[in-house]
Design a protein around this nucleic acid. Structure first.
Lengths: 348, 348
DNA sequence: TTGAAAGCGCTAACAA
DNA sequence: TTGTTAGCGCTTTCAA
């Protein structure tokens, strides 16, 4: 079996409490051991290759040094999804830097609200980072109730006590649309994301605001209920191309990059060149936005940073430090690439 | 504080051991409790919202129900990398299905061999899935030594005792090259992956085998030491385009999809159309292979399945079941898309 | 400066 | 069918 603190104590000829004291000798604690015994203990520990059992330690201290990361369990959210990917990278980076570990949890099933709440009370994690695309999670409510440290990412809530990390989706929608307007487009479609996801609505609001501000009246057909997947963009494009010529948009602001890729592909199949005949804007600006052809103009969402910040805030919470701010809305900006251009002459 | 087994026992008017017995009442165990007390206990537990503390349980049972997943800590390996992404998806799927949890570890630093071995002895995980691109890991040696359950993914070793999950890289290299030969290419370049990574060499071997079998003598300049990143393909392409006309290849077999994307981009910038003037083959066939333009012909590696299988094998190991096989080499196949075509007339 | 001992919440052997 | 009890490996009072 593994070597325990007792073995070390025995070899060093001291008590277990002395060993414990020496090995937990973090700065600030008052030293209660003489240098001589300290050396003997260190020597013995080294000789035996002793490593404390974190399970036992956690049981008594009530702290584990592990953070839980929860994604909604939809294949779409863990698989083939650069968004989750980058959130995770950011979280992981911070977690590793701070000497924590990361545990992956999941809300089984597609009902993002009904995450198994047993998971919350799991004493194996000190706190939870919840990626909660749908608003008003009962999980969050529970965390608040029992004061379990938690921070929610892409989560919309009225409750100012809940720690949230969001990006400015409305401004993002505005920027995308405004960019197209400035290029001279007047017939601009917006492919709206999954309505269950809380980022979909604000982006639409931003679109509407930009249109209104430019004195443009969007046709109802231009606001297509699509979704965040590649296929959603693909089929929505097919639908929009059915519109009579005078109603057909010259630009499409897609729900996200994946969706935009579907748009581009559908257009390519129809022989409609991007951006000459149709401009396309994505959202998220994930790493593959620069890999499409043409490279995608996209609203940059600081996803990696959001993950990192989420971990930072959670760690502060866990360690009982004051957090300067509970709710963050990170800025977005537009990354212009080659998928947008002025509208074709005959259409403008 | 959280409600404990004692609270439940008290409320139900029984002993803690009865509660423990009822709550661990997994099929197969002989029941030691009368139906009446069973009901009382269940009722009490429900009423109190009792959930057992996994920490305490693990401390005594020696099992945690958590698997560790270790990637080499290189940003390239967790960030922007569809490969790790898909491995993780596969692992996660299986882990969730089997009621396990997943903990993410990392080998800090770029030295993939010197993973912090304390991590291994971590009693918080029942076993380890190690993604170990470089051969002969000391970590694996240590696992064998102390009989810590572990399975290695993309790991090359002579030791038949080590559980490994690999794909048939040599055959993959062969298939890619043979496909190009069948299209009529005779001047075929291969951009070799990072030599530290154990999949790079066998793919090159497959390339050489196919060439030899077709009676083709590859020029040394055609085997370019590139790498697995996008930029590696980009710069290697620039180099290869410097070759004098008669030595210049008409097809490039890239180290992986990311690399191939770099190749395509470099070619696009030079105005060389793919596949008309240059055929390109990728490797991995990750989800984004179908998103490039043109969609990429690529060797399909069953990455998701490898992750899933790794988890399956590890769980079997952890649960003390016999594993039918310790070492797996999963088959690959070629997915032909639109980045390959016969060589241009004037060149063949 | 040190060691003995209690106990974190649970399981499992043992006794009743 | 039950309850008592001894730990799992550790931290942390408390007394020496």
């Amino acid at each position: 079996m593994a070597v325990t603190i007792r073995d070390v104590a025995k070899l060093a000829g001291t008590s277990v409490s002395a060993v414990s004291a020496v090995l937990n000798n973090t700065a600030g604690r008052r030293i209660r051991v003489s240098e001589a015994t300290r050396q003997r203990i260190l020597e013995a520990a080294k000789q035996l290759g002793y490593a404390p059992n974190p399970l036992a330690r956690s049981l008594v201290t009530g702290r584990t040094g592990v953070l839980g990361l929860v994604f909604p369990y939809s294949r779409a959210f863990i698989d083939r999804n650069p968004f989750s990917d980058q959130i995770m990278s950011g979280v992981f980076e911070e977690v590793v830097n701070e000497g924590y570990n990361l545990m992956l949890h999941t809300a089984v099933g597609n009902d993002w609200n009904a995450a198994d709440e047993k998971m919350l009370l799991d004493p194996r994690v000190d706190g939870l980072i919840l990626v909660l695309p749908s608003p008003n999670s009962s999980v969050i409510a529970r965390c608040q109730e029992v004061k379990f440290p938690a921070v929610a990412v892409v989560y919309a809530t009225e409750n100012k006590q809940v720690c949230t990390i969001n990006a400015d989706d409305q401004h993002g929608g505005f920027l995308a649309t405004q960019h197209l307007i400035e290029l001279g487009h007047t017939r601009i479609a917006h492919f709206v994301g999954d309505p269950k996801v809380s980022t979909a609505q604000p982006r639409l609001q931003g679109y509407l605001k930009a249109m209104e501000q430019a004195g443009l009246q969007p046709e109802p057909e231009w606001m297509v209920q699509a979704g965040f997947d590649w296929k959603d963009g693909y089929s929505a494009t097919q639908r929009i191309l059915q519109l009579p010529k005078h109603k057909r948009p010259t630009a499409i602001f897609a729900a996200n990059d994946l969706c935009a890729e579907g748009v581009i592909r559908a257009l390519r199949e129809q022989g409609i060149p991007v951006p000459e005949q149709m401009s396309v804007v994505g959202y998220d600006d994930t790493w593959f936005a620069s890999m499409t052809n043409p490279p995608l103009t996209s609203v940059h969402m600081p996803i990696y940073e959001m993950g990192k910040l989420a971990a930072q805030v959670l760690i502060a919470l866990v360690e009982g430090r004051e957090v300067a701010q509970r709710q963050y809305t990170l800025p977005v900006h537009l990354t212009v690439r080659q998928s947008t251009a002025p509208p074709p002459k005959e259409s403008s």
